[in-house]
Design a binder for these strands. Structure first.
Length: 205
DNA sequence: TATATGATGCACT
DNA sequence: GTGCATCATATAC
């Protein structure tokens, strides 16, 4: 089985992100073909978890290229990133959505009631379908023994890639959401449909 | 089908 | 204490 190497990930994250589309990630019996990702550019990126420096939570973002960064959010969800750039540089690509290629039964079991199309449609759903959690934080995917693998996409020329603003980042005064650092495969139904960065409705007092 | 809202726990300030 | 790189559900059309 071929895996993407550390060399592949040790490049500018904006270059890597679109190339990850169509690649197949496998973990715990489920394989997913990536259809949507987002780039986070370490120290230069106000939307990155690493923008304010290294903390215990984001430590694995600073690891060598190809290291997994899995974090817990909204009190109930995990999201999965692959670290890019050399050790010490906290760039990463968030796996936002994909199409389940193998292990449908396991994925369905983990996701509960869900259509096949929704199994990995959205970062937290993807993580749940693949059983990614705290234990996978810090895994080094280029290692042949690593439980998680990322395989290159099959040869078929460059797929139609589209770009747009990232999802879910909002805040006062111009933030990271305005960078077109979200990438997806044109025409894929398994791309997350979540609406971009609408300001959260103010709560009535 | 589309939109609105609550749930939920942890990291960070 | 506050705010999340979200999702499932309820309600309205």
């Amino acid at each position: 089985m071929t895996r993407l190497s550390e060399e592949f990930f040790d490049r500018p994250v904006l270059q890597i992100a679109p190339e990850l589309l169509g690649c197949v990630v496998t973990h715990a019996g489920v394989s997913v073909r990536l259809t949507e990702v987002e780039a986070y550019d370490g120290a230069n990126d106000p939307g990155s978890h690493a923008f304010r420096g290294r903390t215990p939570r984001n430590a694995s973002m600073f690891g060598p290229a190809g290291t997994l960064y899995v974090y817990f959010t909204y009190g109930m969800h995990f999201c999965c990133n692959i670290g890019c750039g050399p050790e010490g540089i906290a760039s990463a690509v968030l796996l936002r959505a994909g199409e389940v290629m193998a292990g449908h039964d396991l994925a369905r079991q983990r996701r509960g009631r869900s259509t096949d199309r929704d199994l990995a449609r959205g970062p937290a759903r993807l993580a749940q379908a693949m059983a990614l959690g705290r234990d996978q934080d810090g895994l080094y995917t280029p290692d042949p023994d690593c439980a998680m693998s990322v395989e290159p996409r099959s040869q078929q020329g460059r797929p139609a890639v589209r770009t747009g603003p990232r999802v879910g980042l909002s805040g006062p005064g111009g933030n990271g959401a305005t960078y077109p650092w979200r990438f997806w495969l044109d025409g894929e139904t398994s791309v997350s449909a979540y609406r971009p960065a609408k300001p959260r409705r103010p709560r009535a007092t």
